[in-house]
Amino acid sequence: MRGAGWKCTVRILKNTSFLRVLQQPEGYRVPCTSVGFFERTLELVIRSAHFAGMSFIMVSQRMLRKAAPAKINLGLHVLRKRSDGYHDIETVFLRIGWADEVSITPPEGRKEADFPAFSGPLQVIPVEDASPADRVLQVPPGADNLVYRAARCLNPDKAASIELRKRIPVGAGLGGGSSDAATALHLLNDWWKLGRSLEELIDIAASVGADAAFFAAGDAAAFGTGRGDMLKPLLQDGTPYVFPYHLVVAAPPVQVSTAGAYALVQPNDRNRPDLCEVLLSGDPERWRAELTNDFERVILPRYPRIAAAKTVLEETGAVYASLSGSGSAVYGAFEDEARARKAEDVLRRSGCRTWRGRA
């Protein structure tokens, strides 16, 4: 490819100051003299976009790549157990900038031996990453993998190679696997030119995992009911809700089984506060009293490292701190960026993986 002047287009989906730097709202054309130069340039763009909390799709002649963001739960009520074995809940989902990367490439020209997680005509590839901050985990093949299941639900016959670069901790209540699956649905819908509507993609995502519906819908924040798959975008004064604080998210080096957590929690559907009303009040004192996560009462006593991480957030100045999902991740809201930085530093030194930024 050297000397070929190969070009790609990066299509930014969120209008921010980073986009103005590119000065081309419809995309940034990157002239490349080699594929290697292209990949290095793309990595710089991707990391810059992650830092800015942006969502984007990279479109090229060889690849589609998109960030798959994590989420936190702003309050979580487990209301009742259903006849199908699931639980009815209510929660507010908030998308954050901690993100995996999902890439789609053609399957042609590679051998089956190249794919350690080869399964049928669609390959899910655990990507080796030199950065110690980006811990790569082995991705299970076949039906055990949410990305694979989502792709097969979208179209059981077509082929593609999917590269999944994991940054979001697994078993942390941050929705990484669901986000990967939802992101893959959007990319494969474009790659295979299927023309599925957003509503169809949300329905497919919900069949793979309840949290996946939120990521497929693409809202920055949403109120979730049912299994978490019945969604209403969260608005404040008619515009999408913007979280008003600096966030620090910390994942201690433990994993919590979601099924195990649900087996421990006691459902309660009586006299529960209105999570949206409490959140939109913007009052941290009300948040601490009423914006509660039902899993905290059963998880924190059983996992001292999770409880300790939440204590660090509170002692370093968080106006509000909570468990995300069923854990193991906790997060804190800070008025002051310096205090958020200090909290992140303490948590990292204690062995937690962390993310800090604005939602």
Rank of each mutant, 00 (worst) to 15 (best):
R135C: 09
N271M: 00
E101F: 14
W6S: 13
T33D: 15
A133M: 09
H50V: 12
A321D: 03
A70E: 02
R82L: 15
Q123M: 05
R196M: 05
G317Q: 05
A4E: 13
L154K: 05
R356Q: 14
I96H: 03
K111R: 13
P107Q: 02
R20D: 15
I72E: 04
E337P: 02
L22I: 04
Y303D: 00
S322R: 14
G260D: 08
P69A: 02
F37S: 12
D294S: 07
G224S: 08
P301A: 07
F223L: 15
T41I: 01
A151I: 07
E315S: 14
E26W: 12
G120N: 02
P253S: 15
E277F: 10
R20G: 02
S207V: 02
R286V: 06
M58L: 15
S324D: 03
A318K: 01
C352Y: 04
T16R: 15
R62T: 12
F56Y: 10
Q266W: 05
E337W: 09
L188G: 03
A205K: 04
D237I: 09
G120F: 00
C32T: 12
Y245D: 06
A308M: 09
V78L: 05
A318I: 01
L22V: 03
H87G: 06
G109W: 01
P116C: 00
S83W: 08
V249H: 08
I46L: 11
G224W: 10
A70Q: 04
C276N: 06
E290I: 03
L347Q: 05
P244S: 10
K7A: 14
V30H: 10
A261R: 07
L146A: 05
L300C: 09
A250M: 11
L300T: 02
F334R: 00
R82P: 08
K111Y: 05
L74Y: 07
V102N: 00
A70V: 06
E108P: 00
H186R: 14
E285D: 14
E26R: 11
P121G: 13
E315V: 08
S131K: 05
G177T: 06
R47S: 11
R110F: 12
F214V: 11
L234Y: 13
M230V: 14
Q24P: 00
V170G: 02
N271Q: 10
T316I: 11
G327A: 03
S119L: 00
Y241D: 10
L79I: 07
F295N: 06
L22H: 08
P284Y: 10
V147W: 07
R339Y: 03
G218N: 10
S131Q: 08
E163P: 00
G97P: 03
A333S: 04
D274K: 06
A307L: 05
L19G: 09
H246F: 15
T292V: 15
F51V: 13
E128M: 08
K7I: 14
V102C: 01
E26M: 09
Y241P: 07
G109N: 04
S17W: 14
T258Q: 07
